[in-house]
Amino acid sequence: MRVILVVLPASEIGRSEREAIGAAHALAATLGGEVYVALIGPAAESGVEQRGRTGPTSEASTVARAFFVAHPLLREYAPELYVSALEQLWATVRADVILFPGRTIALEIAPRLAYRLGAAVATDVIGLRAEDGAVVITKPVYGGKAHAILVAPRPPVVLCVRPRAFDPVHGEVIGGDAERIEVALDLTSVRARLIERIREESATGMALEEARIIVSGGRGIGGPEGFRLLEELAQWLGGAVGASRAACDAGWVPASWQIGQTGKKVAPDLYIAVGISGASQHVVGISGAKCIVAINTDPRAPIFRVADLGIVGAYENVVPILIEEVKRLRAEEGA
């Protein structure tokens, strides 16, 4: 029987984790087999602790089996220890597919695990299905200008899914019984130690990945001051602020605001691209957006080829008036 094992290494179960389980179910629909989930580290410890207090929940789980890989040394993320723990998990749970959510730590863990297991690995996966028992993977290449269809001829295969590419599951992720997996870890194997962790503030306090509305600025903004205007618009719209690589490399905004192939992948209801030319590596980060509005002085900017609504004009003129219109709309709604 085929096994698709979803590994969740982050300390919380968020949207990315639910999407990974959704991706596993989507694959199971054509591959057959069962979906298992493994929590590792702090999430596993709270799972163990919660089960100890209350027992398994009565709600049906979305998965067939669940595992908690808890160990004091896993409380703080260290790739060597997490990879070693997962190697040991795999010795017990011989999965055909090991699937990770689209998190930065997963992009670090997955290739190293694949190396140790002698497994194929693919990151940034946007499509998954089975054909004749083989796993067929779709991922964007050339900055999103093409899609590559890859085939893993034999198990196991290790995958990281792209955020916002798969529908999330709802309900209790691990509702029923979960097995506790014991692992032996060697602290001396750790060669990279976390010293300090800094959360960068988002402009409006809302995380980009969760925002329904995003106002984003590029090279056309011209400097950090222009982003104040975008922040104001985002505040009135109840959204978040993002940026293109050009604006981040110029140091106008924090790197964590970057959206694109190598920044955040977002799928808001509304994406307003202000002074962004629309290079493919940026566009591939917003391909999930429902409605894209572009404001740019150049009518031939590539962003207009992917936008639903377009205004040709200087943002310094357009955005302040847009803010007024949104304020007026909010006032009408409030009345």
Binding site: I149, V151, A307, V312, V318, I321
Partner: peptide, 30 residues
């Protein structure tokens, strides 16, 4: 190594028709 095979590359279709927001003034466009 477990080698992944590249079966093919495809170019995803980009069928989008943009709606241009026109107006005499910026006020109208907004």
């Amino acid at each position: 190594s477990g080698r992944l095979q590249v079966r093919e590359l495809i170019i995803p279709s980009l069928s989008k028709a943009i709606e241009w927001i026109e107006g005499e003034t910026v006020q109208e466009k907004a």
